[in-house]
Amino acid sequence: MSTAGQCPEWIPVNINEHKNVWVYIEIEKGHIHEASLQLLGKAREVANKVNSELVAVMIGSGLGSLINEPGMYGADQVIYVEDPRLETYYSLTYGEALAQLAMKYKPEAFLVAGTMRGRELAPYIANNLRTGITADLTMIEVDEKTREIILVRPPFGAWQLAHIRTLKRRPVMGSVRPNVFPLPAKDENRKAKIVQEKVEELREPGLELLERTEIKGSEEMPIEKAEILVSGGRGIGSRDGFEMLKKLAQLMGGTYAGSRKAVDMGWIQHERQVGQTGKTVRPNLYIAVAISGAAQHVFGIREAKRVVAINNDPNAPIFESADYGIVGDYKQVVPELIKLIDEKKNGKK
């Protein structure tokens, strides 16, 4: 095991030269992506524990005053590159540029928000640096003795957590699921040291963006923003069955979601999937309707404040992960809930 990660074809790494915790700041539609800010909060804790600085890394064109924001969320330093070649996000050019910066500054950790772009970008950077990468991490631990940063992720099955060490290479790299960590408080007066950097050679992306359009019809509330989620699983039985859940959700000011099964059956869109292969959500109230409660699903609702389960199988594992459970047929229970809540909202009839 001691030989792990020592391929002689890789540029050698001296672990002791690597310092500071880096967070890549993703910019989307002229704003910093919330997932990157959430990550700054967690990375701040890690930087404190390893006694080093938290560095936010931003690249692009026309960054303007955005470079001041990471400081307000806890960064000690902002390293940014302003370059017209980086105006459009291309996986390959962004990956090359960020890998070049990391090669120059030698961070000990490099964290990327696991948005769809982040998940596309991070493994490319890691590979160019010939370092390891851990996807979807949910915890970051620091060994008190060695100050080594250890990334923790749920592997196959979701009940067990894998602690992943990067033995001989740096930076320790990971992508972090959006919404696993809360948004840190913003301090408008807090300032980071701002450092402008350049990238010299940048390979042609080999890609040309032809068109970019917003997905229409997503006027429905995104599940990660909802305070109340009504979520359906295999037991819903049909796409029509979701209408009832939508109605209940709407009445409560929330929105609907579903399990992997509901997506596989084509009843709901993947973007509404909760769980290990879907999204992590942190609502006040999560109502799991006809969801059996596979580990992979329950994983996505760990951060929910209250969980309600409605299922006609009293042995469904979801009841183990619920605050309140109703054993019964959702087709009978949900209409009653709709009636009661409607009366409460709109006065007794």
């Binding site: 990660g5 592997p155 957590l161 894998a162 602690h163 033995l167 183990e320 992960s321």
Partner: peptide, 25 residues
């Protein structure tokens, strides 16, 4: 294994979130 920068140092059971588990049947 030798060419892998990362190793799984250990696995542990995920701590369950404490829930009330009040069930009506």
């Amino acid at each position: 294994l030798r060419g892998s920068p990362t190793v799984v140092a250990k696995t542990e059971f995920i701590s369950k979130i404490p829930r009330k588990k009040e069930i009506i049947q």
